[in-house]
């Protein structure tokens, strides 16, 4: 069996394990992010994470760890600035996004002789994940999944009707926790799929599942299945066709999106009646 051949390679096993967990947590969180209309926020945080990467390279500290820290700081800054409500949230996101990218480029330029490439974090490098990173990323993914499951109802209310959550619970607590989860997922996704592409794992599976679901839970299950399938197919394509894993994963997802559109077009009567 030629497919079993990949399990002889440790790097492929690590890529598949991390890929599957990343696919599950991004699909789950993606449903909340899209419902809250915060897709651009995930993109902004991924870009500001690059400041942490640049700082890590400059200070010779783990870029992944500092990426997570800078994402969290940016998330809190965004939350605080949005609370003031003086400026458009998208404009503030754009300010942080471009500022983050510019600062990252500067930091990497100041330390251009360092072997760590910014490209690894811009476009991901799932096939080069180490054992330590695997345990770290799986742990972070499990934390995201467990938190979403434990506080499912509160997050559901937060993204669909935050005023209603405000009279039931401490809304600020859940808003900050939501930002923390996005920061965690971006921290994982930076090495797996890249800062420029992490948004795709959050958004595209939600769009694919949407026409076929009648409930939020159903949409979650659908998007998890699609994301895991695209992740595995993308990694296999990368291995057998020697193409960048990030691009094969995202293009597989886009392929699924087009196929689901065609499928829904031809069978929409069935779904309307269901």
């Amino acid at each position: 069996m030629f497919l079993l051949e990949i399990f002889q390679y440790d790097f492929m096993v690590r890529a598949l394990v991390v890929g599957v967990f990343t696919a599950i947590c991004t699909a789950m969180l993606g449903n909340f992010v899209v419902s809250a209309r915060q897709a651009i926020v995930s993109d902004m945080l991924a870009h500001t994470a690059l400041v942490g990467v640049g700082l890590g390279v400059f200070l010779q500290v783990s870029p992944s760890f500092l990426a997570f820290v800078s994402t969290l700081v940016s998330a809190l800054m965004l939350w605080w600035l949005n609370r003031k409500k003086n400026q458009a949230p998208e404009a503030i996101s754009m300010l942080l996004l471009t500022g983050g990218l510019a600062a990252a480029l500067l930091l990497v330029h100041l330390n251009k002789n360092n072997p760590v490439s910014l490209e690894t974090y811009l476009f991901g490098s799932i096939l080069t994940i180490t054992d330590t990173e695997m345990y770290l990323f799986v742990g972070m993914s499990l934390l995201v999944i467990a938190t979403l499951l434990c506080f499912w109802r509160s997050f559901l209310t937060l993204v669909f009707d935050k005023d209603f959550l405000g009279i039931k619970a401490h809304r600020t607590f859940y808003e900050i926790m939501f930002m923390f989860l996005i920061a965690l997922v971006v921290g994982v996704g930076l090495k797996v799929i890249g800062g420029l592409l992490i948004g795709a794992l959050l958004v595209i599976p939600v769009l694919i599942a949407q026409p076929f679901s009648r409930s939020f839970k159903g949409n979650n299950i659908g998007s998890i299945v699609v994301n895991v399938m695209a992740m595995i197919i993308g990694i296999l394509l990368s291995f057998y066709r020697d193409v960048p894993a990030s691009s094969s994963i995202i293009l597989t997802l886009i392929g699924f999106y087009l196929l689901s559109g065609l499928f829904h077009f031809y069978f929409k009567k069935f779904f309307a009646a269901a």
Binding site: N31, V34, S35, A36, R37, L156, V159, F160, D161, K162, D163, V206, Q210, S213, R214, S215, F216, K217, G218, N219
Partner: peptide, 13 residues
């Protein structure tokens, strides 16, 4: 009503 029409949500939810 603020429920976004983008992602499905059942009456039960």
């Amino acid at each position: 009503y603020t429920l976004s029409g983008v992602v499905p949500i059942s009456v039960k939810e």
